[in-house]
Amino acid sequence: MPEKFASVDEYIAAFPTDVQTVLRKVRRTLHDAVPDATDRISYRMPAVTVSGKPLLYFAGWQKHISLYPIPETDDALAQELAPYKSGKGTLKFPLARPVPYDLIGRVAALFAAQR
């Protein structure tokens, strides 16, 4: 993979076709949850931004898709996120299992509301 990407489309295109499909759907899910968002490359990965400021980052890896950071949640949502939590502020969604796009959308909407 290149060190730098000029656009989110270029970033996604650098992955195998099956991962591209997942990354595109994650991107669409984030934008559906936060309609006024735009995106750009920041820290060498896609960032969904609101008013020019990064809200969430998403990234493709060999065996998972990651989403960063995690917003403050209530106990019920925290329990739903627990199987995907990895380290402080990171969610990892294994590519070997169905990706919970609805959960990703709820995280994005919550984080946007908190901002």
Rank of each mutant, 00 (worst) to 15 (best):
A47W: 03
Y43G: 00
E72K: 15
T73F: 01
P98D: 14
L23E: 07
L67R: 02
L91Q: 14
R28P: 00
L95D: 04
S86C: 12
P54W: 04
L55V: 06
L91W: 13
L81W: 09
P46G: 13
P94A: 04
A59S: 15
Y101K: 02
A109W: 08
V48R: 01
P98F: 05
L77C: 13
G87Y: 08
S66Q: 00
G89Y: 12
G89F: 09
T73K: 13
I12P: 05
S86R: 12
Y68A: 15
V22K: 10
D18H: 14
L56S: 01
M45P: 01
A108C: 08
D9H: 05
D74R: 02
V34I: 00
V99I: 15
T17Q: 14
G60E: 00
F58A: 04
A78C: 08
G105K: 03
I12Y: 03
V26R: 06
M45G: 04
Q62T: 14
H64Y: 07
T21C: 01
D9T: 14
H64S: 11
D32T: 12
V22D: 10
L23N: 09
R106S: 04
H64P: 02
T90A: 15
I70Y: 00
I12A: 09
R28H: 11
W61F: 15
R44P: 02
H31Q: 12
